[in-house]
Each structure stands twice: as C-alpha cells, then as structure tokens.
Design a protein around this nucleic acid. Structure first.
Lengths: 252, 252
DNA sequence: CGCACTGTTGATGTGCATCAAACAGCGTGG
DNA sequence: CCACGCTGTTTGATGCACATCAACAGTGCG
C-alpha cells in the first residue's frame, strides 16, 4: 500500500501541492464523482489546507468535535473504538480515495479514533460548509448520501462475516476485499503490502492475532497465497473467491 | 413491542388515516425532527399512501429498486441478508419511528430484505422526491445525513459486540438496547414483548438459538430478568448494565 | 384435536482463545 | 562492529465457550 500507491506518472512535488480536488490523483474516487469542472472548483473552496499525518498518530479521536470529514489522499488509516475496559475494536481500514469521519455526523463528534498506519496525507472537508454547498449542488448531495449508504452496506457485510464465517473464510474475505479496493485504485490486485499488524487484522475480523497467523499458514498450505511478513502475493484468486463464495451475499 | 406499542390514548381508526407526518404519532422520532410546521407539511406531500404489511411478508427484498425509504409507523420489522448457501444474517430490528431502506441509497437497490415481525404499517417516503425537497429544506437534509450516520454508528457498536462480547453480554446488550429504544417511544423499559424468534435474536447476535436460550437462563439465574416465552420483565436494570459496562464504548 | 412450529435443556464435539516459547527484524548505544 | 532490547510474528500445547446433535415440552393455528 505504501508509497507505491502514489502513481509514478504523477510524482509528488510538495511545493506544488495545492489543496484542490481538481488536481487530486484520487479525484474520481472521492466526493466529486460525476461533478462537472465548475462544480469541482466550488468543492475545492472547502478544502482549506491538505495536511500530513505521521505514522502512528491520530487524525482524530473519539469525542473530538466534527469539524471536517477527511478524504485519504496518500497512505492508510485504521479506525477503531475503545471499550471501557480497554479492548480495541478496529472498525475499518482506509486507503486513498476513501472517506473518514462519516460516523461523526450523527452526534457532531467523532465516534471512533482514526490512526495513520503509515505517513499519510488527507484532504479535510469542512462539514458545515459541505452541507451548505450541497444545497446548491444536488449531485454533491447525492454523492454524500451514497457515500454514507455505502458505508452502511459495507458494515452489514462485516456483520455477515462476523456472524457466519469461520476464521479462514474471514481472512480470505479480508484479503479479497483489500485486493479489490487496491485494484480500483489502479494497483496490482495480486501483490500488495499489509500496512497493519496481525493484531489489528484480528481485531477487525473478530479473531486473535495467533488465529490470523494460522489462517495465513492454511491459505499458504492450499497454495492460494504467498505471505511473507506483510508482503502479500495472491496466487489463486479464483480459489480464494471460492472459499468465501458460499457465505457471501449473492452478487446482485 | 406488539399492539402495546400503539399509544392507547391515540386509538387507531383506519378510516381516519391520512398519509401525513403532521398527524403521525412518531412525528418527533422520524425524519421531521426539528422541522417547522410548514416544513413538515411540505414533507407530507412526499408520502403518497401509508400502507400495511402483514406479519411474515416482505416490505422489500434484496435487489428491489429503491423507490422509497420507509418509516415504521406501527409494528416491527427485521432486516436480513441471505448468503449464497442460504444462511440468514439478521442485520437489525426496527420499531416505530425508525427508518428502513437506508442501505439502498448507495446502489439504487435494496441491499437486504425487510420482513414484518407482526402486522405493521409504514410510511413510504419517495426517495428521489425526498432528495429534491431536501435541497430547499436544509434541516431536512441535515436530518437525513444524521439518520444515515447514526446507522453507521449503530453498526459499529454491533461490530464491537460481535468482536468483543461473550454470549451473555451480547444478550444483555441486546435487551438493554431494545429497552432503551422502547423507552424513547414512551413505553415501559422494563416490560415488553419480543416479536422475533430466538433464532432471529441468535442470528443478529452471531449466536445459535440454543445459546440464546441458555443465556436467558443465566440472566434469570442471576435475578436480572424474568423471561417467559417472549414476555420480558427486567428486574435489575443496573445489574444488566454492569454486565455490559466494561465491554462498551465509554458514554461520550 | 392434531400437527407444525418454537422454545428448553442435556450430552458431546470442535474451533478458536489462551498460554507459552522461540525467532526475526530493527534501531540504539556501548 | 556486535550486543541488546523491543516489537511483531510464528508455531505448539492445552482449555473452554459455544456449536452441534438430540430429545422433549409448550404453544398456537387450521
């Protein structure tokens, strides 16, 4: 996922960075989908200052007031909730083009923590101004509605995974999902790097880190993947898909 | 939840039913929260015809095109997803004042099934028209955003439950959650009726029906509840809360 | 009244958690 | 340079919570 996620055809020159959707490399994956040129320019005005988040630091924490939503531009994040007695539940991993902070809208404060898994960069989108702008840009409003709804669908799939899949199936589903999302971004669906620890994958999938390790060993024994540390190589995409085929929702 | 959910002070005369938010008994719990009188009247125009759904029948099914969102007016529903090999995952239970169909917005078609758990009644809200109206009613748009976001927060809490709680804690959390939602609607948080089967509770909580039965027995043995069939009486609300206190998110 | 559905309880099995130990990678400092 | 500690990963041994299988009781509907 690392720096390899920045398309090489569009090298990053820090001094050229402008906080603008119109020159963003994840333009077609983010809020502006389907907006016209002039419309995107109006959206641009909301983004005061794109900024960096160092690996391991929080973009926001539970209880922080909702100022902005954040589009991941470079890098990756995990979102997590902490229980009273200190257990962490990872609720999602986010790669470039994906939005962070949607769960803060309901209560005007963030309902989870967001940590950078590597040195990353986000576009803050001032929420009050976004709502205002959306009034005059129906397709922007529609995009926001869809974004929120997509998160709900995604969460329901996770509930299905937690309720019905065994550990190997969960791991396979996790790898396939990540592979697909990377693929959309234009990167190899077969070779990628996990930016999170085994423990974080485990929390996300409702398993212990040891179980993740054993799951990896099982998939390797079946010749489906090759995983060394955090380097993933998918050898048999179809085999992986078959493993989870039965326990997933029918493909519309 | 049954018929006891209809306030006795407001008896239901079928021939007086008008499809109107302004005379709806769940007005303050639904989309119109915080809208002014004239604004609610404009929302009213979207609701063509309130209608009934018989127990056990589907309000909509996976793949149905998104025409309307539905506000539950009377009765209760379960939403569920079906896997390829036929396993059901219940993703939610919905009582009056709660909205159905939010997961359909992302793909213009419903992503789950919604079944009536008892004879029920819903207000269909034509979605395309709702989006249109929301353009000129900022507070309506804001309500919709919050509604969507609240569903995301709720789902994240469920993921935490699935990832971190044991069977008794899950059951206690389920009962407390239902109790609170009934309480908001003005009904006793201590005495209510489960409209769903043990198997459906189990699916929702990621457990088997037998485990639900045993969990009920455990809670009863501890003197926390009295459950006979589907009749629930909560004897020790604080005790129940302590049971789940440690494994939940800190209360903002 | 009878039959299908739903709920309860017991006996047994198993998948994953837990506990434990060893190893690899990596930065720090002697 | 290597020794050292720290973090993360892997693998093995054991235990337990929940699933599974099974038998039966209660409920309600045609």
């Amino acid at each position: 996922m690392a720096s390899s996620l920045v398309p090489e055809t569009r090298p990053l020159h820090i001094h050229h960075l402008k906080a603008a959707c119109s020159n963003c490399s994840v333009l077609e994956l983010c809020l502006p989908i389907g907006l016209s040129g002039p419309e995107v320019e109006r959206l641009d005005t909301l983004i005061v200052q794109r900024f960096k988040v160092k690996k391991g630091t929080a973009l926001y924490r539970t209880g922080d007031p909702l100022l902005s939503l954040y589009a991941v531009r470079i890098g990756s994040f995990k979102t997590s909730m902490l229980s009273v007695d200190g257990r962490e539940q990872v609720t999602g991993f986010h790669i470039p083009g994906e939005m962070l902070g949607l769960d803060a809208i309901s209560g005007d404060e963030h309902a989870c923590n967001a940590f950078a898994l590597e040195d990353s960069e986000v576009c803050p989108i001032h929420f009050a101004q976004l709502e205002k702008l959306a009034q005059s840009l129906p397709s922007l409003q529609h995009n926001l509605n869809r974004l929120l709804s997509r998160e709900i669908v995604r969460d329901h799939s996770m509930l299905m995974l937690m309720g019905n899949m065994n550990s190997d199936e969960r791991l396979a589903a996790f790898l396939l999902n990540l592979s697909q999302r990377l693929s959309i971004r234009g990167y190899s669906p077969r070779d990628f790097v996990l930016k999170m620890r085994r423990e974080e994958i485990g929390s996300y999938l409702g398993l212990r880190l040891e179980t993740i390790c054993r799951g990896i060993a099982h998939l390797r024994d079946q010749g489906l993947v090759e995983i060394a540390g955090r380097e993933v190589k998918i050898l048999d995409m179809e085999g992986l898909k078959q493993l989870v085929a039965g326990c997933q929702r029918p493909q519309h």
